[in-house]
C-alpha cells in the first residue's frame, strides 16, 4: 500500500524532563514521550538516570493498569531512545471538564469525586505514589459514563510509607485549590470516598492532617 505522506510526530507538550508527541502507531493514534538528555549532567549518569526513570514510569503505568485503574496502555519502550509509546487517550482533562461545567452540581461532583477516589485508593493500595496529582493529570475518556484515566507517571514511585501517600493527596489538595478556587467541598468529597474505598485509607488521611500543618516537605532539622 503506497504511503501518501511520510508519518510525522507532532509535539504537543514540552516539559522540563520530557517532550510528548502524538504519532500514528500501527493504525492507532498514540503518543510518544521522550525524556531528553540533560547537557549539564555527566553523560554516564544522565543515561542511567534517564533510563531508570523511563522504566519506572512504564512499570507504574502498567502495574496499576493491571490492578484495574484506567491508564494509557504502554505499547513499546525504547530504552535506547528513552521513549515510551503509549495509547492516546481520547477525552478531556478533569481540569478542563471542571472549568467547562463550573459550577458542578452536587450529584455530579459526588460522582466525579468517587471515581477519582477509587482510582487513587487502588493505586495507593498497590503502594504506588503518583507524585504529581493534579486535575491536569487526570482525564475522562470520551463517551457516556467516561472512566477516569490517570496519566503522567513521570514522577511516580513505589512506596509503602503512609507519609508518601499523604503527601500525594496533599499535592492534589493544593493543586485543586489553586486551579479551582471554590471547590473545597469537592476535595472533601474525594477524601470521604477515599476513606471508604481504599484499604489503607484511614492512616493516610490521618497523616494528611500532619502534612497540612507543616507542608509537603518534612522539616530538615533534627
Amino acid at each position: 500500500m503506497p504511503d501518501t505522506q511520510p508519518p510525522v510526530a507532532t509535539l504537543i507538550k514540552q516539559g522540563a524532563e520530557a517532550r510528548v508527541y502524538t504519532i500514528p502507531f500501527a493504525g492507532r493514534p498514540a503518543i510518544v514521550k521522550e525524556r531528553f538528555r540533560k547537557a549539564y549532567r555527566h553523560p554516564t549518569l544522565d543515561e542511567k538516570l534517564t533510563s531508570r526513570r523511563v522504566v519506572q514510569e512504564a512499570r507504574c503505568l502498567h502495574r496499576i493498569r493491571r490492578a484495574g485503574v484506567d491508564t494509557p496502555t504502554v505499547y513499546l519502550v525504547d530504552l535506547k531512545a528513552s521513549t515510551i509509546y503509549m495509547e492516546f487517550i481520547d477525552g478531556i482533562s478533569v481540569r478542563d471538564h471542571i472549568l467547562a461545567t463550573s459550577p458542578l452540581n452536587h450529584q455530579h461532583e459526588r460522582e466525579l469525586a468517587t471515581k477519582i477516589a477509587k482510582s487513587l485508593g487502588v493505586m495507593h493500595d498497590m503502594d504506588i505514589v503518583h507524585g504529581d496529582l493534579t486535575t491536569s493529570n487526570m482525564m475522562m475518556r470520551a463517551g457516556d459514563n467516561p472512566s477516569l484515566v490517570l496519566i503522567d507517571f513521570g514522577l511516580s514511585f513505589v512506596s509503602t510509607l503512609v507519609e508518601d501517600k499523604a503527601v500525594d493527596l496533599y499535592v492534589l489538595e493544593r493543586a485543586l485549590s489553586s486551579t479551582h478556587p471554590d471547590t473545597d467541598s469537592f476535595f472533601q468529597a474525594i477524601l470521604n470516598a477515599y476513606a471508604k474505598n481504599s484499604k489503607g485509607g484511614k492512616p493516610v488521611l490521618k497523616k494528611l492532617e500532619d502534612v497540612r500543618r507543616r507542608g509537603r516537605k518534612r522539616t530538615a532539622f533534627g
Partner: peptide
Amino acid sequence: HPIPLPPLFAPPPADVPLATVPLAGD
C-alpha cells in the same frame, strides 16, 4: 498480506524546538 510496522520515533536534539518530526526517515 502486507501489514505495515509502526515507524519508530527518533528523538530530535534537545535544543531544536521542532513542532513536528518525521518518523523513521533513514
